[in-house]
């Protein structure tokens, strides 16, 4: 081990100085971190299986067990009503994966190593965000197939269906940034899980995922309609041509607008907060 250090590797680099070089570095490093996070999925697929099995279970339980007693306002098949809700629920479930993944990194020394290297500082977060988006794409593909198997379908053409998928992924990006911020607030993977999981279910139940707000008590229905999740659910029902578009309330009539506005607002809030919190690790 006498020549442990020197090798043919070139001398220390001049760090990126121009804005263009910095941007290039941010993209290259972000991609390296994306690959890192995707490798995690490949090396530890159990977690992915868990995240897949949950929505499939919900389709079966709600679609067939409770579904027999459920009503869709305006008529229509309950399973067709349910599937867009399950898609959104799956996006929301990613919150736990994101938050505990980031918290796990932070609780270990590996983030210290990243921070002591001359890599792009943004890469840890952009890489996480990109990898989670790829994961969501994988989850969406599986769920679409699963949906087709239980009789769900898109009725208004592939173009509108793809737009719906786009809205779902936009929501997932917003949830990713919320998850990153949560993990930076509470950099302990166990604590983060304890916070996230009990929050996710009521958030799903207090929306139009399982039941139309029209059928809820008035005050509960109002909360449900303004829930950011409901916006994406309503918009995707509309784009897929599925039943249960809901009554003549403002949020129901402007579902598409809200399905874009809510995630954008969430990203605009939590991305800067997360970046600031990350920089404050050096305090």
């Amino acid at each position: 081990m006498t020549t442990a250090t020197r090798s043919a590797v070139p001398a220390p680099p001049v760090s990126a100085r121009t804005p263009l070089a910095r941007l290039r570095r941010a993209i290259v490093d972000g991609w390296t971190m994306t690959r890192r996070n995707m490798t995690h999925v490949v090396r530890a697929p159990e977690e992915l299986i868990l995240y897949f099995s949950l929505p499939i279970m919900f389709v079966l339980v709600f679609g067939y067990v409770f579904g027999s007693g459920m009503q869709v306002p305006g008529g229509g098949n309950y399973r067709e009503f349910l599937l867009p809700g399950i898609f959104v629920m799956t996006m929301l479930n990613g919150l736990g994966a994101t938050a505990s993944g980031v918290a796990f990194d932070l609780s270990r020394g590996v983030v210290d190593r990243f921070r002591s290297m001359s890599m792009a500082r943004s890469a840890l977060m952009t890489g996480r965000s990109a990898a989670d988006l790829l994961r969501a794409l994988l989850e969406m593909s599986t769920l679409l197939v699963c949906g087709l198997l239980v009789g769900w379908q898109w009725r208004d053409g592939v173009g509108r269906a793809l737009l719906a998928v786009g809205l779902l992924l936009l929501l997932r990006v917003a949830i990713t940034w919320l998850g990153i911020y949560l993990a930076l607030l509470v950099p302990n993977p166990d604590t983060v899980s304890v916070i996230v999981f009990p929050a996710v279910f009521p958030l799903t139940a207090l929306s139009n995922v399982f039941v139309s707000p029209d059928l809820m008590p008035r005050w509960l229905g109002a909360i449900s309609e303004w829930n950011p999740l409901s916006a994406t659910v309503a918009a995707t029902r509309q784009l897929f041509g599925n039943p249960g578009l809901g009554a003549d309330s403002w949020p129901a009539e402007h579902a598409l607008l809200l399905a874009v506005a809510w995630p954008v607002l969430l990203i605009a809030t939590f991305a800067p907060l997360a970046v600031r919190r990350y920089q404050r690790l050096s305090r």
């Binding site: 890192r36 995690h40 090396r43 270990r108 020394g109 210290d112 002591s116």
Partner: peptide, 13 residues
């Protein structure tokens, strides 16, 4: 930098 807590990714090889 090498600290007393191994700063490597434990899932990766």
């Amino acid at each position: 930098l090498t600290g007393q807590y191994a700063a490597v990714d434990e899932t990766l090889s």
